[in-house]
Nucleic acid binder design. Structure first.
Lengths: 128, 128
DNA sequence: CCAATAATTCGATGATACTGGAAATATGGA
DNA sequence: TCCATATTTCCAGTATCATCGAATTATTGG
């Protein structure tokens, strides 16, 4: 499934995983780009590049307040990713995965929407 | 954490995710390389390349029987990955994740070993 | 409109990753 | 030993990713 692959790819990088962890800690309010860059010592262009990736994967959301843009972790997307991986891990077996709540507190995420088993596209391949 | 990044990176690819799913379905016995290649229509060299990646990430194991090599999903590693992601998703909040058993049946995985919170290395960066 | 601040986009460069044909290695059997 | 089968390694070509300075866009306040 394309979504899962994008999410996995987004997290499969030092800086991006660090960014995501930071945002998870920061909670729903999120953090301004500048604050993230300062904390993780990333050049603005580099940071913007990685944030774009995380946004494209749906793991991070952005909202503008004046001239600063707050980025926040998308807990729902993360829950869905974990749900998908659990599917991959368990297949037939009944595997209840208790879902997560935002660090900031508040909302308890609803039982993750089960991803249908055969979402993997068949991959025709071969023949460059 | 390096291990998690390697695992995420390994799964963040069409063919490799397909391979892993196939192996999860196949259960503990695993599948010969040839069978995987036939099922997914991958050239031997390409398949070998991806399997090496999955092995390096610890998500897949291999055992030789005669001239054929059986590859199998490492359920424990997958559980640990899910555990790590759950940590990332929940941070402070207590998030019980029910772990998975191999599709083949048998063993119920023990409650995932909690990954310590600050495993992210500090990343000095900046200054090419 | 102009200056200052916050962030993104552009562009060039270097580094990795993917792919698959061909050759090499490993194994079992006649 | 010689052959067939199973898989990996080597190699080269292509493609995608990562980094960051400089230029650009957005926004607020004089």
């Amino acid at each position: 499934m394309k979504t899962a692959i994008r999410a996995l790819g987004s997290l499969a990088h030092d800086s991006r995983l660090a960014i995501f962890r930071l945002l998870v800690q920061a909670g729903e309010a999120g953090l301004p780009v500048g604050a993230i860059g300062e904390k993780l010592q990333l050049a603005p262009a580099t940071l913007s590049f990685h944030l774009a990736g995380l946004k494209h994967a749906g793991l991070v959301t952005a909202r503008r307040v004046g001239r600063t843009i707050y980025h926040a972790a998308n807990y729902t997307a993360m829950n869905e990713l974990i749900g998908y991986l659990s599917e991959n891990c368990c297949q037939g077996a009944d595997c209840g995965v208790a879902m997560c709540a935002p660090a900031a507190g508040k909302q308890i995420a609803q039982p993750v929407k089960k991803v249908s088993r055969n979402e993997m596209t068949a991959r025709p391949r071969r023949g460059r």
